[in-house]
Amino acid sequence: MQVITKITRQKNQERYNIYINDKYAFSVDESTLIKFGLTKGKILDSFEIDEIAYEDEIAKAFNRALSFLTYQMRSEYEIKKKLIDAGYGESVVLEAIQKLKKLGFLNDEIYSKALLETKKKTTKKGPMAIKQDLMKKGIEKNTMEKALESYTYEEQLAIAMQLAEKTVKMNSTKTPVQIKQKIQDTLIRKGYSFDIVNEILDQMVLERDDEEWDKLIEIQGEKIWNKYVRKFEGKELELKVKQALYQKGFPLDIIERFLEARENG
């Protein structure tokens, strides 16, 4: 006969040591103690002891998950992976997750919306990039799509414009053509659609006066000239430099003026 002869509380923990027939048998979480009504004098059989051990493992996994969630919100997939990596069995982990979801500690729908808002504000990502982030977190397709639906076209346009304006400021030594290419590359990389990209580019007004063009071509033209002067000369050199500058968005009259200055210099 297996009888609980003593129960003691562990130091600084909500766990209890269970003694059977005056010998230490196992320890349990307070929730397990209450659930099974473990008290001094209670008789246990082998099946009950196995059941208690299984339930206590769930309690441990649950508490471990809570510690993960204390620092930041996490998806169901992330919690499952962390618990599996911590050595808990699949069935124990699933039970712990169900308990977390029932108590409202784990909710992928709320998590998805929170992640979406964070990515919009901190990294200014577009829907396609955020979708990739949600997929990495193991969010189900329907939950993911529901969250992304809240990211309106107007919001995307406003955030994309902020990125475009920042790109303009960071590329003051570039031509309008080069800047627009930079804007396109940035927005595509950030996960915005071509519709958003094209609308932003249509709205951008990037003009240069003659003085600004002269400064730009002085910077870029010298680099290109020095690049080709080692390989070509005469008309062939001028043609190569002219083609390169034109591709970068310099007007022909500005290019001709630059080349003329080079010849006379």
Rank of each mutant, 00 (worst) to 15 (best):
T39E: 15
T39D: 11
T39S: 11
G41M: 03
G41Y: 02
K42N: 04
I43V: 14
D45R: 04
D45I: 07
D45P: 05
D45V: 07
S46Y: 08
S46A: 08
F47I: 15
F47D: 15
F47H: 11
E48R: 02
E48G: 02
E48V: 07
E48S: 05
E48W: 01
I49H: 04
I49M: 13
I49P: 05
D50C: 05
E51D: 13
E51K: 11
E51P: 07
E51G: 07
I52K: 00
I52G: 02
I52E: 00
I52D: 01
A53C: 10
A53Q: 14
A53H: 14
A53L: 13
A53M: 14
Y54Q: 09
Y54L: 09
E55L: 09
E55H: 11
E55F: 07
D56T: 04
D56R: 01
D56Q: 04
D56A: 01
E57R: 08
E57Q: 13
E57H: 07
I58A: 01
I58S: 00
I58Q: 01
A59K: 03
A59L: 05
A59W: 02
A59S: 14
A59C: 10
K60R: 14
K60M: 13
K60D: 15
K60I: 09
K60L: 11
A61N: 02
A61C: 03
A61E: 02
F62K: 06
F62H: 10
F62A: 04
F62R: 06
F62V: 05
N63I: 13
N63P: 10
N63W: 12
N63V: 13
N63L: 12
R64A: 15
A65L: 11
A65V: 09
A65T: 07
A65P: 13
A65W: 05
L66W: 06
L66P: 08
L66V: 09
S67V: 10
F68L: 14
F68C: 07
F68I: 06
F68G: 03
F68R: 05
L69Q: 03
T70C: 09
T70V: 10
Y71P: 09
Y71G: 09
Y71C: 11
Q72D: 14
M73H: 12
R74Q: 10
R74T: 04
R74W: 04
S75Y: 02
S75T: 02
E76P: 06
E76F: 05
E76G: 09
E76A: 07
Y77D: 07
Y77P: 03
Y77E: 08
I79L: 01
I79R: 00
K80S: 06
K80M: 07
K81I: 15
K81L: 15
K82P: 07
K82S: 12
K82Q: 13
K82V: 13
K82T: 12
K82C: 12
K82M: 15
L83V: 04
L83I: 04
L83C: 05
